[in-house]
Design a protein around this nucleic acid. Structure first.
Lengths: 168, 168
DNA sequence: TACGGATAGTTGCATTTGCAAATAATCACC
DNA sequence: GGTGATTATTTGCAAATGCAACTATCCGTA
């Protein structure tokens, strides 16, 4: 019965003398993008399952959360807010309109723009899921002191800002 | 010319008297899963583009990184290591075999298992990309002191452990 | 007012994804 | 040693994804 992924090369490498293989090995467990990605994935899978009984998919929750927290948005802003590609989002919003979760209106001033907003149904579901969201956040942060959590959030915001300066 | 997503409800809500709308609003910018997800996405998009010229997709890099850092793995362990679903990974590894990046052998002891390992070509590409990976990590961490970064990694590991305790 | 370029959103299309079912091999237990 | 449960991987299939091309609208300038 095996459980955790094992490290180390196969037997062949183990018999090789400890010559200077590489000046510095690549340590996955200390690699920030890896640490971020695995936490994000776990969180997404776990929370996605938690909200599935409400008939809401994770991406839909992300839209609801963005709109519920920040009010009506145009598609581009919503894409930035949710990290979802606009073309994907366009179709996702279409589905959510059919589910009566959001409304989509052409903007009067600039009729290229579309304004996406929660419907009453969307509001209701949003408010229903928020406590669940908070619960999962708490689970994630279990054992971290409040000021640690605050520092964590701060660092993530700084990192995001750093990445925002990258070309395109 | 507009750039950042705007907050706030529409004009209708703005005229509404400041009754107790909700005991506590949902603050997206302080919501950990949101902060994690946006950093993860940005990093993925930016780094994915950076390695594209090498003919390697992001998910392929994740496999290369896992194998390069931790040695040959069976599919299940590789899935855990990369946060990629096994069925997706099975096909991804198939492609990578065709690209001669990895080898896939049935395990002799337990012939249900498959062992995935880097080929020389895979090793070469892996070593080629590692410096890029380090560079992007540095960009992300720009302005964070080494001990801050260390604390960040630590917290992410603790959070991951917390999430690991969730049912299934 | 007409025109070229920019911006917002949608859609075509090929690829990727993930769940569930199928397959293959091992294990536990009698 | 045989049998049913368990484990590892693959595959069928429908849905989701993202790039590129397209449409519609707006903006600046002549």
């Amino acid at each position: 019965m095996r459980s955790a992924p094992r490290a180390g090369k196969g037997a062949a490498a183990a018999t090789r003398p400890a010559a200077v293989e590489e000046t510095s090995r690549f340590d996955l467990g200390g690699y920030l993008p890896y640490l971020i990605n695995r936490v994000g994935s776990r969180l997404a899978v776990a929370f996605g399952r938690a909200i599935a009984p409400h008939g809401i998919a994770l991406q839909e929750w992300r839209v609801l959360a963005a709109l519920g927290a920040n009010g009506a948005q145009r598609l581009l802003d919503l894409a930035a807010l949710t990290s979802i590609d606009v073309s994907t989002l366009s179709r996702l919003v279409g589905r959510m309109v059919r589910q009566r979760l959001v409304r989509r209106d052409r903007n009067g001033n600039d009729r290229r723009e579309v304004s996406v907003a929660l419907t009453p149904d969307g509001q209701r579901i949003f408010r229903m899921i928020v406590p669940l969201a908070r619960r999962y956040e708490q689970i994630a942060l279990r054992g971290l002191k409040p000021d640690e959590a605050a520092r964590l959030r701060n660092m993530l915001r700084r990192i995001y800002a750093n990445l925002s300066e990258l070309p395109d």
